[in-house]
Simulated assay, not measured.
Amino acid sequence: IAGLSIFAIDLYFSLSGLDINVNNDTLLGIGDLFNISGSWRVFADLFLLGFSGGLYIVPLYASMQAYAPKSHRARIVGANNIFNAIFMVTSAIFAIVILNVLGFTLPQLFLVTGLLNIVFGAFLYIKLNKHIKHAVSQTNDGIAP
């Protein structure tokens, strides 16, 4: 979660620092994009954002399949896909609200997303620590004479 947050926030700064002086009708080729000062940082942020997402999602899917009972594995994967679809639609609506209703820019959308990701990550960390402490205390209570 940290990589997703860090690179989303850095993408805000790298996109805000780009100096693009073109008309809206001008199409830029890939060579033109590489020649823009600061574009390599944007490309690096996008790559590392995707890479961080992969580091998060691949082990999550692997653990979901490893710990799910064989009799329910297909249902669990299917339910996860349904939740993924719901969250994709929700994130599209969130982006529409941020960009069109609130009038934020695209870099600001990345900043808001990164900051919300930090808040959500902190919430999960606190919840997980409480769960682990509770599980450890129950285990110690059962073992202690």
Rank of each mutant, 00 (worst) to 15 (best):
residue 1 I to D: 08
residue 2 A to C: 14
residue 4 L to Y: 09
residue 4 L to I: 12
residue 5 S to Q: 00
residue 5 S to D: 15
residue 7 F to I: 01
residue 8 A to G: 08
residue 9 I to H: 04
residue 10 D to T: 10
residue 11 L to W: 09
residue 11 L to R: 12
residue 13 F to Y: 09
residue 14 S to W: 00
residue 15 L to E: 05
residue 16 S to E: 14
residue 18 L to G: 02
residue 19 D to V: 13
residue 19 D to T: 13
residue 20 I to V: 15
residue 23 N to V: 06
residue 24 N to L: 15
residue 24 N to A: 15
residue 26 T to S: 13
residue 28 L to N: 07
residue 28 L to Q: 09
residue 28 L to I: 06
residue 33 L to R: 03
residue 34 F to Q: 02
residue 34 F to D: 03
residue 35 N to V: 02
residue 35 N to G: 07
residue 35 N to A: 13
residue 36 I to K: 02
residue 36 I to S: 07
residue 37 S to L: 00
residue 38 G to D: 05
residue 39 S to T: 14
residue 40 W to Q: 10
residue 41 R to Y: 07
residue 41 R to H: 11
residue 41 R to K: 11
residue 42 V to E: 01
residue 44 A to R: 10
residue 45 D to H: 08
residue 45 D to L: 04
residue 46 L to F: 13
residue 46 L to P: 06
residue 46 L to T: 05
residue 48 L to H: 07
residue 48 L to W: 04
residue 48 L to G: 05
residue 49 L to P: 10
residue 50 G to M: 09
residue 53 G to W: 08
residue 53 G to D: 05
residue 54 G to E: 04
residue 54 G to S: 06
residue 55 L to T: 07
residue 56 Y to M: 13
residue 57 I to W: 12
residue 57 I to Q: 11
residue 58 V to F: 15
residue 61 Y to K: 09
residue 62 A to M: 12
residue 62 A to G: 11
residue 63 S to N: 13
residue 63 S to K: 14
residue 63 S to H: 13
residue 64 M to Y: 09
residue 64 M to F: 11
residue 65 Q to E: 10
residue 67 Y to H: 14
residue 67 Y to I: 11
residue 68 A to G: 01
residue 72 H to T: 11
residue 72 H to Y: 10
residue 73 R to I: 07
residue 77 V to I: 11
residue 77 V to A: 03
residue 79 A to S: 00
residue 79 A to N: 03
residue 79 A to R: 07
residue 81 N to M: 04
residue 82 I to D: 00
residue 82 I to K: 08
residue 83 F to T: 02
residue 83 F to R: 03
residue 83 F to G: 01
residue 84 N to T: 04
residue 84 N to Q: 04
residue 86 I to E: 02
residue 86 I to W: 03
residue 87 F to E: 05
residue 88 M to A: 09
residue 88 M to D: 01
residue 88 M to N: 12
residue 88 M to W: 07
residue 89 V to H: 01
residue 89 V to S: 02
residue 91 S to K: 04
residue 91 S to P: 01
residue 91 S to I: 01
residue 92 A to C: 04
residue 93 I to P: 00
residue 95 A to F: 08
residue 97 V to D: 02
residue 98 I to F: 13
residue 103 G to P: 14
residue 104 F to N: 12
residue 105 T to K: 06
residue 106 L to E: 08
residue 106 L to F: 14
residue 108 Q to F: 13
residue 108 Q to V: 05
residue 108 Q to Y: 15
residue 109 L to A: 14
residue 110 F to R: 00
residue 111 L to R: 00
residue 111 L to I: 04
residue 113 T to K: 12
residue 114 G to K: 03
residue 114 G to Y: 00
residue 115 L to H: 14
residue 115 L to M: 15
residue 116 L to G: 15
residue 119 V to N: 07
residue 119 V to Y: 12
residue 121 G to D: 01
residue 123 F to V: 12
residue 124 L to C: 14
residue 124 L to N: 12
residue 127 K to L: 10
residue 128 L to R: 10
residue 129 N to G: 13
residue 129 N to T: 13
residue 129 N to R: 15
residue 131 H to S: 13
residue 131 H to T: 08
residue 132 I to R: 12
residue 132 I to W: 06
residue 134 H to C: 02
residue 135 A to G: 03
residue 138 Q to I: 12
residue 138 Q to C: 07
residue 139 T to S: 09
residue 139 T to F: 12
residue 140 N to V: 03
residue 140 N to A: 03
residue 141 D to T: 04
residue 143 I to Y: 04
residue 143 I to K: 09
residue 144 A to Y: 08
residue 145 P to C: 00
residue 145 P to E: 02
